[in-house]
């Protein structure tokens, strides 16, 4: 199982939960092979490295993320205060299903594309880790349910640059037409 996480190494990204989940999967030998790659930079990085189990590797920010999404079987980021989370949708567009926090910005991504699962992240770390682990196992068992060409297409359509430029143009026309404008 190849797992990927990307983000700034700050507390609200909850990479600590990734490290704890990785340690649990490793200890329980849930998968024959396990590799968890974290691409991050920031103040929490050294602390994370200290708590990381041996299946976890760290990379500094890279220019081309696509290759890493291609490498991974699942993308995990249990962060909070996440307005949207572009990395989630980039992951789905690259064919990699996601695991994200319920009640955060990624809700609309998962609801509208179907490309992953939302997990409850609570104050009890053990419970949060159990939820993440359960979601990873669910996706590994039913991969085609969470990643297929229709899901990728829905994600592409949602973020389509041409359509979004059109939305901006409509918005500008609506706001600043001659009758409306200051």
């Amino acid at each position: 199982m190849k797992i990927l996480s990307i983000g700034n190494a700050i507390y609200r990204k909850r990479f600590d939960l990734c490290a704890l989940t990785c340690a649990k999967l490793e200890k329980e030998k849930t998968f024959d092979e396990l590799s968890w790659r974290i691409i991050a930079e920031g103040p929490e990085l050294e602390k994370l490295k200290q708590m990381a189990p041996k299946s976890m590797e760290f990379l500094r920010r890279v220019e081309v993320l696509r290759d890493h999404y291609h490498w991974a079987d699942v993308f995990v980021l249990p962060s909070y205060d996440e307005g949207f989370g572009l990395v989630y949708i980039e992951s789905i567009m690259s064919g990699c299903p996601i695991i994200a926090t319920a009640g955060e910005g990624a809700v609309e991504i998962v609801e509208q594309t179907g490309g992953g699962l939302l997990v409850d992240i609570v104050s009890d770390n053990a419970l949060s880790v159990a939820n993440i682990k359960k979601a990873i196992i669910e996706i590994s068992h039913n991969y085609n349910l969470y990643m297929n060409p229709e899901i990728v297409e829905r994600a592409r359509d949602k973020m389509d640059p041409v359509r979004i430029q059109g939305e901006w143009q409509d918005l500008l026309d609506k706001c600043f037409d001659s009758k409306n404008s200051d």
Binding site: R66, F84, L86, E90, M93
Partner: peptide, 11 residues
């Protein structure tokens, strides 16, 4: 939404 190009991110 902020746009993402499918030329940059594809399966």
């Amino acid at each position: 939404h902020l746009p993402i190009s499918s030329e940059e991110f594809y399966p």
